[in-house]
């Protein structure tokens, strides 16, 4: 893996974005950040990533919508998408489930709270 591999991290929790970005940068990935689905689209069009790590519950455009739009767009459908799915069994404050995530065309899914080492392994598997 080299520093040219570009990962876009999208979540409306800026601390989670930063934590993921720091972990991925430490593994020599090039990381960009977005804080909602609309901004993510802008970043994708400006600088197409190789892979996206995408939260579900975000303002303006949620992760399911964004994932579906990316996978329906011939220019961007080859971007690998890992969805951050908050599993209702593990996170008391969500009604989104892992099952909801599996209905999208995302390439992979990781539940919150996130195991960072597992995420890095998942990123490598999906590149």
């Amino acid at each position: 893996m080299n520093a040219q591999t570009h990962i876009l991290v999208v979540d409306d929790d800026p601390d989670l974005v930063e934590a993921l970005a720091m972990k991925l940068a430490s593994k020599n990935f090039r990381v960009t950040r977005a804080y909602d689905g609309v901004e993510a689209w802008e970043k994708i069009r400006a600088d197409k990533p190789d892979l996206m790590i995408l939260d579900v519950m975000m303002p303006r455009k949620n992760g399911y919508q964004l994932c579906d739009e990316i996978k329906a767009d011939p220019q961007y459908k080859n971007i690998a998408v890992i969805l951050l799915t908050a599993v209702a069994d593990a996170v008391a404050t969500t009604s989104y489930t892992h099952h909801d995530g599996k209905k999208t065309l995302a390439d992979d899914y990781i539940p919150k709270p996130i195991d960072l080492d597992k995420l890095v392994s998942m990123v490598n598997d999906n590149l």
Binding site: D12, Y35, D36, V38, E39, E42, M57, P59, R60, A88, A92, T93, T94, S95
Partner: peptide
């Protein structure tokens, strides 16, 4: 602030399930 930023006010409220 960057252009086309997200709204300041919350669009959803997280409630315990």
């Amino acid at each position: 602030l960057r252009e086309n930023h997200a709204p300041f006010k919350p669009e959803f409220r997280v409630e315990p399930v």
